[in-house]
């Protein structure tokens, strides 16, 4: 980062423009767009879960366009095979050898639509790529482009014809965001406005991939005080107490929590993380990882609130 700030590329301005543009496409979902951006700035993969038609795909598409990333969409179906994702080698008659045809996963941003419609075998092919940032096809390891994000969407698991992601694989998503129905005013605006698909096509990129890399570097520079780590560890310890949740938060989840909170603080124009940042990102980071033992008593959205209230801020 240069010493003399150029207004248009300073982190604050870049982030504000990205958020403004996302919110102009996805109406009335400021919190979710912000979480999604925080997730990407923290170099995490994002899972959007909700009913069909609330704008999951639109959000993913808008993010790709706004960040100026090379974009691929994979529609997951029950007959999708791993090779459809990673690519195949085909024998080329002219060269008399096998030639690799990369699959749609070779993109900077991959939208995995309705991920829980595919079989576990196909799911795991994607999830491996998410973790390793590389794919291995026929014994040859090929790196994925940089940056590499997966935004996956899934329908609520009660729906028929789905293969729910196992917990171990859910852990690979930094955040799970639920969109929910828009409020009345936003829905009215949506109805009055132009067609979203048309709008998406015209959406200009707000930042360059270089700026995105810089922003990601800035996230790691956000100061995490010892007192804040005390707080994060207290939260983790609370989730691991017996009798509350089926599994406590893993070390990877704890690390994700810190990264996400750093990104949230950066979006909030701060150079240090506050307990508030942790509390804001905690539902998205921990919601898909924590399953209460006593499911009957508590509404799903209350689970994280209870966790926050159980841990005093240092």
């Amino acid at each position: 980062m240069s010493l003399a700030p150029i207004p248009d590329t300073s982190p604050d301005v870049s982030i504000r423009r990205v958020l403004e543009q996302l919110n102009s496409v996805i109406l009335g979902k400021e919190r979710q767009t912000r979480l999604a951006l925080a997730c990407l700035l923290a170099r995490g993969h994002l899972l959007i879960e909700d009913l069909p038609g609330v704008g999951k795909t639109t959000l993913a598409h808008a993010i790709a366009q706004t960040l100026g990333l090379q974009f691929q969409r994979i529609q997951f179906t029950s007959d999708l095979l791993p090779a459809d994702i990673v690519g195949v080698s085909i024998f080329s008659r002219e060269d008399s050898r096998f030639e690799f045809h990369p699959g749609p996963i070779f993109a900077q941003l991959v939208l995995a639509d309705e991920i829980n419609r595919a079989t576990p075998k196909t799911q795991s092919a994607l999830l491996e790529a998410m973790e390793e940032y590389q794919v291995t096809v026929e014994g040859v390891t090929r790196p994925l482009p940089q940056p590499f994000f997966v935004i996956a969407t899934q329908n609520p698991q009660e729906q028929v014809g789905t293969y729910p992601l196992p917990e171990s694989q859910l852990d690979r998503f930094l955040m799970r965001v639920q969109l929910g129905y828009p409020d009345a005013a936003s829905e009215r605006a949506l109805l009055r406005a132009r067609d979203r698909r048309e709008l998406l096509r015209e959406l200009p990129p707000c930042i360059t991939p270089e700026t995105l890399t810089e922003l990601q570097a800035a996230v790691t520079e956000v100061h995490v005080a010892d007192a804040l780590l005390d707080y994060v560890q207290a939260i983790t310890a609370q989730t691991r107490r017996p009798g509350l949740y089926r599994n406590g938060l893993s070390p990877r989840a704890t690390l994700s929590l810190v990264h996400a909170a750093q990104a949230w603080a950066l979006i909030d124009k701060r150079h240090h993380v506050l307990p508030e940042d942790v509390q804001r990102v905690l539902p998205a980071v921990a919601g898909h990882r924590l399953i209460p033992v006593e499911t009957a008593g508590t509404a799903p959205e209350r689970v994280i609130t209870q966790l926050i209230e159980a841990v005093p801020v240092p």
């Binding site: 307990p275 508030e276 159980a310 841990v311 801020v313």
Partner: peptide, 9 residues
Amino acid sequence: HAPHEGPLD
């Protein structure tokens, strides 16, 4: 002040 409340909140 609730124990879990952050300073800004």
